[in-house]
């Protein structure tokens, strides 16, 4: 028995010492049961993922695929039916580890009668952050998420986008090592989306680990180092964006300032070498880039006029 305990303790110690892993799940399973104890929904089935420290990891999947369930299991809000999960080297039922985690839920769920200042102060107090430091962090975060102008306004008067921003701010109040974001860009306009993405990249630059789940694929593609796709509670695929999207049979050439004649020559050359040209078209930007460009120009113009 003693030997068994020693092995268990040593294995636990060994796990704690594997420093580069922030999150690890082992056959993580969650089944929701009915009132009578019958299995109703298998929300998650034997999920095995490992997220390295300092990376941005995206959890992708359609609605009801088990993304939010995974996050809730990692945060200890719900309990696994089978399997285990470790966050920053500790089991998910360890409350103390939550002091190193920042969480933004899918919906912005806060006390609506509090203003932004009070909200951040409340969550800061739950982390036992001293008063002066709390105030400092509140000011810094409100500036960072662009809510300084509305800091004294009750949250019930906030737009959906503003609520998402305060959600991000409260997730960062404890300067966490691991940030878990559930649909961080949902409800945000393209500018807010871009700012949020920049903020997440900034967090990565600071060495933080970010786990985000979303069904907005372009967002995930823009910022994530690695992604996992889950559907119906099961892991379908995981890897880096490059690995997953690489198509070794097709090569893309981006060429600037090429005449029509030269282009035809290139095409002929490819055909001579047994290659097949699938399509030749002019390059186009994304709608997001266009939107941002227009809004940015408009703002700069109105700024100049007001000067």
């Amino acid at each position: 028995m003693l030997l068994l305990w020693t092995i268990v303790l040593l294995s636990g110690r060994a796990w704690k010492l594997s420093d580069d892993i922030a999150i690890k799940t082992e056959d993580l399973t969650k089944a929701y049961r009915s009132f009578w104890g019958r299995k109703k929904v298998l929300a998650l089935n034997k999920l095995n993922i490992a997220i390295r420290k300092g990376e941005i990891f995206g959890l992708l999947g359609p609605n009801g695929s088990g993304k939010t369930t995974t996050l809730k299991l990692l945060l200890g809000l719900i309990f696994p039916t089978e399997g285990r999960a470790y966050v920053l080297g500790e089991a998910t039922d360890d409350v103390a580890i939550k002091s190193r985690i920042g969480f933004m839920p899918e919906e912005s769920c806060f006390y609506r009668f509090l203003n932004a200042d009070e909200t951040l102060d409340f969550y800061g107090q739950l982390f036992r952050i001293p008063g002066k430091e709390r105030k400092l962090r509140t000011n810094r975060l409100l500036t960072r998420v662009g809510l300084e102008f509305a800091r004294k306004r009750p949250l019930k008067q906030y737009s959906k986008g503003m609520l998402r921003r305060i959600g991000i701010a409260q997730a960062l109040i404890n300067d966490p090592d691991l940030i878990i974001l559930d649909e961080p860009t949902s409800g945000l306009d393209p500018i807010g989306t871009r700012e949020t993405k920049d903020l997440i990249l900034g967090l990565k630059a600071q060495g933080k680990t970010v786990l985000l789940c979303s069904h907005l694929l372009s967002d995930v593609q823009d910022i994530c180092d690695r992604v996992a796709i889950i559907d119906k509670g099961e892991l379908q695929i995981s890897g880096t964006i490059g690995e997953l999207l690489a198509n070794r049979d097709i090569v893309e050439l981006l060429i600037r300032n090429l005449s029509k004649e030269t282009l035809m020559e290139v095409e002929r050359f490819i055909q001579e070498k047994q290659g097949e040209v699938v399509s030749i078209k002019n390059s186009s930007g994304t709608l997001e880039d266009l939107f941002l460009k227009i809004v940015q120009e408009r703002r700069e113009t109105s700024w100049d006029r007001s000067d």
């Binding site: 809730k72 969480f103 839920p105 769920c109 404890n174």
Partner: peptide
Amino acid sequence: CTITAKPV
């Protein structure tokens, strides 16, 4: 959710 996700 936001309260229980904190070390409380």
